[in-house]
Amino acid sequence: MATRRSPLLLAAAILAVGLALSVVLSEYNLRLLNLSVITAIAVIGFNFAFGLAGLISLGHAAFVGMSAYTVAILTTATGWSPWAAIPMAVAGTVLFSALIGYPLLRLKGHYLALATLGLNVSFFIITANWLSLTGGTNGIPGIPQLRLHGYFISGERYFLRFGLVFLAAVAAAALAFQRSRHGRAMIAARDDEIAAAMSGIDVTRVRVAAFALSAACAAVAGALFAEHVRFIAPEDFGYVHSITYLAMLIVGGEGSVVGAILGAVLLTFLPEWLRFLGNAYLAFFAAMMLAILIFLPRGLVSLFRRRAPRRIAEGRS
């Protein structure tokens, strides 16, 4: 299991591979890699909820969106610096997730899936119609760029290096958490709720914590998304994106941080690679996804585990 390896090693591997790629790739591939990095952060977050605590949440994109909108509104309407807006967005999103988590997380399985799906649809309707706050379906353009030591973090290459730092930090923290007592408590609460409760684990609290952690990562991803594209619209956070996050984690390998990253990278790049197939490319994309589900039920990580159990899988992406 990748989870046995040191989080620092994982962070170092992400930075090394990412930085190497940031030198050699073309602008187009850099853009896709940036999208992958941002998405990977969201999927690592999703792994807390689904991979560890077993919560099928189909509202993850709403958390990404909530944070992106907070950043966009604070920076454009009230003129905050992005550096101040990002922590605010993350804090706000986490708070919101914990608040709705308490009532929602009594639900399990597909009930939770559909409740959170409804939440995501509701988020879309509100962002699309609350014209004075969100600009409605036109979205919010012109989100100011991040500045570091007087330099703008602009261009795909520099943004990638910036995003990689976040991804490495989030991945390392996630891995460390997964191996900690708290991470094991989450897994225990998923595997056998009653036994977990018997051994002194507050199942509801553990679930809400997993949900809030997942929202925290989603919020980081959302803030980065807003700063990367610098234009957001309700469509960017529709329920389809939540389903995509789930698909990425399952394709990559649920319960695994490395799997989350692999899934995010593959499902971001795959449709773009298939563009040469013309009109049929999305059909092929779906067929390949099905093939992975059928032939690799434990996800992409299982490929690397079996064949090279002691190597770090990210080296391939």
């Binding site: 602008e27 999208l35 469509e235």
Partner: peptide, 15 residues
């Protein structure tokens, strides 16, 4: 999708 639209544009612009 807005994001896919940007991907498509950047791909063409680059390649």
């Amino acid at each position: 999708s807005n994001s896919t639209a940007v991907n498509a544009f950047v791909k063409l612009a680059q390649e």
